[in-house]
Design a protein around this nucleic acid. Sequence first.
DNA 1: ACCGTAAGTTACTTATGAGTAAGTTACCTA
DNA 2: TAGGTAACTTACTCATAAGTAACTTACGGT
Lengths: 208, 208
Amino acid sequence: MSYEIAMSKRMTHAERRAQLIDVGRRVFARHGFESTSVEEIARAAKVSKPIVYEHFGGKEGLYAIIVDREMNALYERVAASIAEGTARARFEQAVLAFLSYVDDVPDGFSVLTRDAPMTMRGRGMPSVISDLGARVQDIFTEQFKASGYDPKVAPIYAHALIGMVTLVGQWWGNEPKRKFKKEVVASHVAAIGWMGLRHLPTDPERVR
Amino acid sequence: MSYEIAMSKRMTHAERRAQLIDVGRRVFARHGFESTSVEEIARAAKVSKPIVYEHFGGKEGLYAIIVDREMNALYERVAASIAEGTARARFEQAVLAFLSYVDDVPDGFSVLTRDAPMTMRGRGMPSVISDLGARVQDIFTEQFKASGYDPKVAPIYAHALIGMVTLVGQWWGNEPKRKFKKEVVASHVAAIGWMGLRHLPTDPERVR
DNA sequence: ACCGTAAGTTACTTATGAGTAAGTTACCTA
DNA sequence: TAGGTAACTTACTCATAAGTAACTTACGGT
């Protein structure tokens, strides 16, 4: 005999760790934090449960690492995308970079938009993506001051834009038949966002 | 003797049912679907577990009713808000109605924005709020056709606007110190959304 | 070819939670 | 005031999942 049945080889510490992070991302993306068991991750990696504990201490440890990596990955992409171009071009490039992340790493994006465990949420915010709002806020505060708007209201616009691109990303990313190319979606989202900002009244509260 | 210790009275079927829906909403809002136990809801209602099963069949049954009620409540508010006024005013009224819901029924809003159980999600969308996108989509398709834009891209804008107001709502709703009144937030969100739509190029894809 | 160690497994313990069967108590009504 | 019934409780069963202790196996260096 015998046919070689697909046999999971031993791996080095580093290899196994990398694989578990990858597999964990996929499983967390599918079922969410609460509904995934360490068992399931181990099974998907063709390994037994204690291996996961050895590498990450537990479910939360693995989850925390995955979220951290994905947040950075997303942030890096967006930051890199706005390196050059006109303000208008950079805005659209940022949106496109966001959607490219959704497209390239759907599991990562899914993890970022799903409920996070209680120990990882600062008062009320269920998912982790809203932290981007805080990061974007800083950029906006600068721009607002420079453009003669009240910097106090910058957080409103920061969250509005993040929310916009996030929900569009979720919707588009889960379209069964991809009706639009990401460039098309990005151009429309960028259009409404950019035009909204450009034509903003100096004091929207007085317009009513 | 004796001091009357606060004693939970018996209730009629209808009373108990209403109370459980109310209590359930609060508990689901705090911990999310997966992390709340029927036990905890029962305890919070000062009742034993089988009562919950008698009324709703189980955790999902109760959850489904709560989500349905809240979706309708939110939709009704927004629909009522756009009964009259100029297009611009109705737009802002809709945003304000949304934020009023966030303010008045924070637990309901929280339930709508948290992870829903697998049995209640159509392919990928973790929360339920994105269904609003589909509902808004229909309105937008009409408006787009009437205004000379391509109705095919209406869903992009529908989801963009829902995402905008949703994340702003989450952020604002969880601000520990309420820095802005809802009318102020609504005016800014309405401003960026409205201006974005009004000054939309006929074909954003060619602008780049 | 041996053997130390890194990689991995089996087999638990403990805890928690969904769901149910069977019995108990308060209330209203004739 | 008896007793029927709606409201409610106790006390389980069964399943699943977090985390761990103790053991086993493959492999690379001498």
